[in-house]
């Protein structure tokens, strides 16, 4: 067996989720090659070469890969797919975008968002918004997998000494182009990798009221999330959404504020180590999964929490 791991990055730094994908690759077994595709991404390739367990890094540095357009990335991965038995990517919006394209072009099945490796052919994955866990098996010689980052403890960032090989394959399908992007700018940690997440729901009332969560977040070094209800109500942007249709998080501490606890939200956070719920409705379903529940008006409890941290 040999595994090709697609590195998640922004051309400057290697995203930590890649360490989790390498962890999944290690459980599968065999040599691990990491592909870094981007533009001016040499530093990312150097970082990938130091990751524990990686035996080789392929670096495809070209204009065509700058924005990770699925059409170009998929063609590149297919070109490099060679003898790898498993092709892995993180189940991020980047991985979810190009991986099925690779699978289809290789006529290989894809298994999405694996949460556990049973053996090289058998994996566990959540279905029905995490309400059931399926163990699935695929005997095909080549498989494409996306990996749920929060389900695997990342390998060490240092410790490896892989060689970096430049790849001069240029695949520009010429059917799609990048127009622009609006990325949320924040000094707080990223939601999916933060140790502590504090999220607000419909109970926050409006977007301005999220300010009280930001204050607590800054004291705790936490990321701020939101329920779909809060996003749908226009309080905060969608990239803050935690849940089945948003981000999946599993921090050490998750604080749910004014969130009732719809199944769709629980699907995104119930693997958190410790869950705190603050809600004035003591019947709210969120209390059924919370380790510590506080029945209180959030507009009194959160500022008090802020003052006592």
């Amino acid at each position: 067996m040999s595994v090709l791991v697609y590195a998640e990055h922004d051309n400057a730094t290697l995203n930590k989720v890649t360490l989790s994908v390498v962890a999944a690759a290690k459980e599968i077994g065999g040599d691990i090659t990491v592909l870094v595709a981007g533009k001016g991404c040499g530093a990312v390739a150097e970082a990938a070469a130091k990751v524990d367990g990686v035996s080789k890094v392929l670096c495809a540095d070209n204009d065509a890969y700058e924005h990770q357009l699925a059409e170009n990335i998929a063609d590149l991965v297919v070109e490099l797919a060679g003898d790898y038995s498993h092709i892995l990517a993180a189940a991020t919006t980047t991985g979810k975008n190009f991986a099925p394209r690779v699978a289809a072009l290789l006529d290989a099945p894809q298994i999405s968002e694996i949460s556990d490796v049973v053996d090289g052919d058998t994996f566990k994955r959540p279905i029905y918004a995490g309400n059931a866990i399926a163990t699935v098996k695929c005997a095909d010689a080549k498989k494409v997998l996306t990996v749920r980052g929060t389900s695997f403890d990342g390998v060490a960032e240092e410790g490896g000494s892989a060689s970096v090989e430049n790849v001069d394959v240029v695949k520009d399908a010429g059917i799609s182009s990048f127009v622009g992007e609006e990325l949320a700018k924040s000094d707080r940690p990223e939601l999916t990798s933060a140790d502590i997440v504090i999220s607000g729901g419909r109970g926050m009332g409006n977007g301005d009221n999220f300010e009280i969560l930001y204050k607590v977040a800054d004291k705790l070094g936490a990321a701020v999330g939101a329920s779909r209800a809060a996003v749908d109500a226009g309080f905060v942007p969608n990239d803050m959404q935690v849940g089945q249709t948003g981000k999946i998080v599993a921090p050490n501490l998750y604080i749910a504020v004014g969130i009732s606890g719809a199944i769709q939200h629980l699907a995104g956070m119930k693997d958190s180590k410790v869950i705190v719920a603050i809600n004035k409705d003591e019947e709210a379903p969120i209390f059924q999964v919370a380790d510590y529940g506080l029945v209180a008006d959030l507009f009194e409890a959160v500022p008090e929490l802020d003052s006592k941290l």
């Binding site: 919006t93 980047t94 059917i175 990048f178 127009v179 622009g180 949320a184 969608n238 990239d239």
Partner: peptide, 11 residues
């Protein structure tokens, strides 16, 4: 809708 925000592409 991408993880960090929004991206626009032309196809």
């Amino acid at each position: 809708e991408i993880d960090g925000g929004l991206q626009t592409v032309e196809l």
